[in-house]
Design a protein around this nucleic acid. Sequence first.
DNA 1: ATCGCATACGTTATAAGGTTACGCAATCTG
DNA 2: CAGATTGCGTAACCTTATAACGTATGCGAT
Lengths: 139, 139
Amino acid sequence: MSRHAHGQPAGLTRNQALVHRALAEAEGPLSAYTILDRLRGEGLRAPLQVYRALEKLVERGLVHRLESLNAFVACSHPETAVHDATAFAICDKCGTVSELADARLARRLATLAGEAGYTLDRSTVELRGLCRACRPAAG
Amino acid sequence: MSRHAHGQPAGLTRNQALVHRALAEAEGPLSAYTILDRLRGEGLRAPLQVYRALEKLVERGLVHRLESLNAFVACSHPETAVHDATAFAICDKCGTVSELADARLARRLATLAGEAGYTLDRSTVELRGLCRACRPAAG
DNA sequence: ATCGCATACGTTATAAGGTTACGCAATCTG
DNA sequence: CAGATTGCGTAACCTTATAACGTATGCGAT
Ligand SMILES: [Zn+2]
Ligand SMILES: [Zn+2]
Ligand SMILES: [Zn+2]
Ligand SMILES: [Zn+2]
């Protein structure tokens, strides 16, 4: 589980920077309320302060929302990277998350949506299972 | 596990049947609390009555949960059908949902998870965009 | 400078979604 | 019959997310 050593992205407001840093320093996904708790020492007091920051961070692609967990993670890719069809693998036991980018997946999703008559604006792909560390030894 | 003439799966308890019917009769996804409201006339009073029924229905594959909507839909495939890697296309404007099954997608997800060191137990794939009816006419 | 607009901020209250805890009843199983 | 399992009902509670309202700040156009 390593992430970039950072360098906060430029152009963030104080609250946005605080929320982004909290996520970047966390080992895994955090709920909005957990973020809030971790930032009370910095003066944050209300859920909306966190949700508003998250909204902007997600818009900019600096943070992703994990729908199946109601939680958020800092993006593990450089800010410049392409982000179509990001998938997340989530360990059901230890909760670690890996952000995966895959062009073939992106194409397949676009094709599927198209065949069903839909445009594809954004996609949620979350894979649940066990990570290598949590998997029982093969037998 | 067969169905009666009116499409109700057999072997459901009263609450499960009520919840399933509510979803099957709805035009789109329903939240648990909306289901509850629609079933108050049938005697349901508490969220847990709905959540417990939903849990069983999801286990049996008769109902799917849409994580990005916090809502549920009746499965649109026969009860016998295979259900690995079901994807949902969701119109952002009118809310209609199409349930898509695709073996190539299933394989790609399995490969992706495997390469990242994860087993793949179940997947959430939700595609957001506009359906044909809601898309602005081209040209 | 100052008006209008846009963006961010802070606070309170409330909506929406989901679970824990407890106990009773029916249905198997030995 | 005892014990286990499953479903049911109620109340209380917790988590997640948004609405509503007002303030502050930057910035370009008049
Ligand atoms: Zn990312
Ligand atoms: Zn793990
Ligand atoms: Zn289905
Ligand atoms: Zn539509």
